[in-house]
Amino acid sequence: MPAAFADAPLLLDVRHLSVDYVSRGQPAAHAVDDVSFVLREGEILGLVGESGCGKTTLMLSLMRLLPSAGRIVAGRVDLLGRDLLSLSEKEIADVRWKEMAMIFQGAMNALNPVRTIGDQISEVIVRHNIAGNKAVLDGRISELLELVGIPANRKDQYPHQYSGGMRQRAMIAMALACAPLIVIADEPTTALDVMIQAQILELLLTLRQKLGLAVILVTHDLGVVAEICDSVLVMYGGVTAEYASVNTIYNNPQHPYTQQLLDAFPDLSNPSDRLTSIPGYPPRLDALPPGCRFAPRCSVAFERCHHEQPPLYQLSQFHLASCHRVESE
């Protein structure tokens, strides 16, 4: 735990969460396997990994929004001490957006094209009974839009009349509508150019300061992680590869996957370095290798890695890595 957050109140405590995708006549795909992490007030957690490593599945399962084939097979998700997985459908619906909101990737499709922005924001405020009357509601919508830098008079416009960056900011305004404790941002900047990307990240940081928001940022952009995150969870093939503070991840990565991921990222201080890539592909989740999931692509794998899955080793107070090499050191 980064020092600044060790004392902050614990919001979310995810323990040993496993999610399978089941379909008839096929082996279950283990999309998320035994993942644990915590989130404290005001903390920004980066969730990093290649496409298909289970990031989005993990986030959807926190709000119990998995598609019908998805099954949470083990684990707990405690939000302020309340186990979300044991709530009824109706109770979890009350939690959604009010306590945990989500910013989806690609706000073009995440907003309904035939309804105005203001209408879509007001809908969720009305759903959770935040505003008493029409005037308060209108005031709240204007306030939210201005908070993210959108003139309030554009609330009666439709998503297609907004630019890409504005849509994403409108999505953030909508996420903040019920003053949630946690915002899950699933690749919020993927489809945007770098200038807009910087604006959106700046906005998230400001909001964290103003509102004490905790954010889970799902991304595969390590630059973004270095810039704004406090702690980082690196996932590979559905399991935790490494979980530590952002400083530890960048300065003392222990898992070979983390190391190679960092090597694959351009380093501005050494522009002459050639970029390296990790050979091979991530494993298929319905046909996982018997040992360490990264072993087939790992340059330093040894015998044991290929038939024994490494547990998560605790390296220091807040540094976990799942690699056999860590143990031998």
Binding site: M63, L65, A93, D94, V95, R96, W97, K98, A101, M102, F104, G106, N109, A110, L111, N112, P113, R115, E123, V124, R127, H128
Partner: peptide
């Protein structure tokens, strides 16, 4: 569509999702 997932994440009921989205 993604906006249906958004609607679910907003805590809307099945009926509201079908009717309004």
């Amino acid at each position: 569509e993604d906006y249906i997932l958004t609607a679910k994440a907003k805590g809307l009921s099945t009926f509201q999702i079908l009717k309004d989205h």
